[in-house]
Structures are given as C-alpha cells and as structure tokens.
C-alpha cells in the first residue's frame, strides 16, 4: 500500500528535474553557458561559495568542539541559536544581516566610521550571507560526530602525555576528518545555492553579487532558455556534491 504514496513522492522529486532536462535547448547550450553574464555568475559563485566554505570550517570547527564538549546549562540554548539559520527563511536572515551591517545598522555604521568599510552590496556581503546560512550544516555534522566518538580517545591521549593542543591536532582533528569532509561539501552546496539572503543583503549586481542562482532568476524573466541552461549547471553540481560527500542518509545508515 505504501508503494503508491512513495511513488508519488519520488515523482515529485524526479519529474521536475526530468522536465528541465527535456526543456533544455541542447543546441544553444554551449553558447548560453559561455555568455559573459553566465561565466561571470559561475566564477563569482565558485569564488564566494569557496570562501564561505573556508569561513565555515575556520569558525565552525571550534564552535562544534565547544558545543560538543561543554557541559554548562547554557549549551542547549547556544545550540538552538546555532541552528537558527537552518530553519529561518533565508530572506529573513538577509534582512537581519542588512540591519546589522547596513548603513543604519550598528556594526555597519561602526565599520564605516572607524575603517571606512561598507559591506552591503559587495562580494563580501555575498560571502557573509552564504556563511550565515551554510555554517549550521557543518556544525551539526561535526557535533554529531564528536558526540558519537565521545572524549575517551582524548582522555587516553592526555594520560599518554599529550598536551591539549597535541591532543587536538593528533587525535581530535584526524578523527573528525570524515565528518569534516562531508560537512564542508554540504556547506559548499548550501552556499552555492544561496538566494534569499544574498539578494536581500547583497543585491544583484553582475560580476559583484550576482551569483548563479541570482542569474537564473534574472534570466528567467529575459531568456528562459538561458535560465534553464544555468539551472542544468546547478543540478550537475548538486549531483556531484551528493556523489562526493555521500551524506550518511545516502549510505542507508543513521
């Protein structure tokens, strides 16, 4: 009996993608993908998503370790806060960033006056927005791995005479590598697909803040074939990500 709704669910996922594949104008595909607007968007997407993934790793690893190892009462609250961007509509996140870093925002005004730096509507704003939405993916997968492993290996390493930094470098980090890899790829994918927070906080300026998803949205009004071609590119990237990262769900494990 479950086969009917299960089949429907599968169709809901597969059919739109298949429709896109059918609709694609394969003759114009190379020309559409190599137009300067497309190439600009692709380059910008790869650079910003790469940069935000690096930011996610640098900031997310310590955060995950702290969340997994801390025992205080406030940790549960902290964890809920960290997960906020995961459930928050990206547009709301973008709006929040805008009111923090915008010309009237508290940090935005501070940065403008002290360092003469304006963040909104720059490539930095794109990276910031992407990091905001993508970091929870990294933190959640790392924290799960850390909790699963417990701190018994670290305790043994300490009794063997390893200083805390040596323990982190030679035991904690190597044990985390698989989870770090899949967490980083998931973050990269989320950053690459970011739309709502980016368009709200960074706008849509070609070559500066117009990433692939924004370009798809832009072209959908002007040239549908071009939009479809770019969408195809994003689908290819998504498939590659799933193949590389192999999140636990794909392996059939929990």
């Amino acid at each position: 009996m479950l086969w009917i709704p299960a089949g429907l669910a599968l169709a809901l996922v597969v059919l739109p993608v298949a429709g896109l594949l059918v609709r694609t104008d394969y003759a114009r595909l190379p020309a559409l993908l190599t137009s300067s607007a497309s190439l600009n968007a692709l380059r910008l997407s790869l650079v910003t998503a790469g940069a935000s993934t690096v930011a996610c790793v640098l900031l997310g690893v310590p955060l995950a370790v702290v969340l997994a190892r801390a025992t205080g009462r406030g940790v549960r609250v902290l964890r809920a806060v960290v997960l906020l961007p995961l459930v928050l509509p990206p547009v709301v996140g973008g709006l929040a960033l805008l009111f923090l870093f915008g010309s009237n925002g508290f940090l935005g005004r501070l940065l403008a006056e002290v360092a003469d730096v304006r963040i909104t509507f720059t490539t930095a704003a794109v990276v910031l927005a992407q990091t905001f939405v993508a970091m929870p993916f990294l933190v959640v997968s790392l924290e799960g791995a850390l909790r699963g492993a417990g701190d018994r290996y670290e305790q043994v390493a300490a009794t063997l005479g390893a200083r805390p930094w040596t323990v982190f470098r030679r035991v904690t980090l190597p044990l985390l590598l698989p989870a770090l890899g899949s967490g980083a790829v998931l973050s990269f994918a989320r950053a690459l697909g970011e739309f709502g927070a980016t368009i709200t906080f960074a706008g849509s300026l070609e070559g500066v803040t117009r990433t692939l998803p924004l370009e798809v949205y832009n072209q959908a009004e002007a040239d549908v074939d071009s939009a479809v071609a770019l969408a195809l590119l994003l689908i290819v990237v998504a498939v590659v990500v799933i193949a590389v990262a192999r999140p636990k769900a794909v392996e059939g494990r929990t």
Binding site: Q155, T159, L160, A162
Partner: peptide, 9 residues
Amino acid sequence: PPHRRGVGL
C-alpha cells in the same frame, strides 16, 4: 593535568 602526571591508563 593528566598529561603531566606520568600515569598510564
């Protein structure tokens, strides 16, 4: 701290 105790576990 454990790493300066000279214990084995």
